[in-house]
Amino acid sequence: MSVIITVGMADYKTARSPDLLLTAGLGSCIGICIHDPFLKVGGMAHIMLPMASGSLGGNPAKYADTAMALLMKEIASMGANKSRLRAKIAGGAQMFSFPGKPQILKIGDRNAEAVELELKKYGIPLLIADIGGSFGRTIHFDVATGDLRIRTINHGEKVV
């Protein structure tokens, strides 16, 4: 019997096969999904901002860099082998655009960049990056197969 484990905003969770990880309503936030296909374990983080940049206190699972550190530690403690890890990410949308406002500070894009940088730092191949657009995403991650199901309201549903 598989259980669906819900990951909240600024939260991270790990799971073992046959359990699934879920996070609902990703906007400019990013869902980072990492798994070890051999051991069939993995984890998901729902990050909201790029860098903790030395800010003390607060919830470390909020930021791409500090959340990755926590997630990697927990996945390693489940016995996963770092060289086998694979990643998929989704989110990073721009939900609103105000006419005449500069686009340089789009937080969704900055989040995606930060996450990609972190994955590179840990040497984890990024297989799928379903990012951008102007719509929300709900994602289910199967830690056994690595299948990532991405559901949207008006832009279809797919498994990648």
């Binding site: 309503g25 906007g27 400019s28 609103f96 929300g136």
Partner: peptide
């Protein structure tokens, strides 16, 4: 018009 969580996170952030 979309998922409320997705829209609110964009507004907060």
């Amino acid at each position: 018009v979309d998922m409320i969580g997705a829209i609110l996170d964009a507004i907060f952030l």
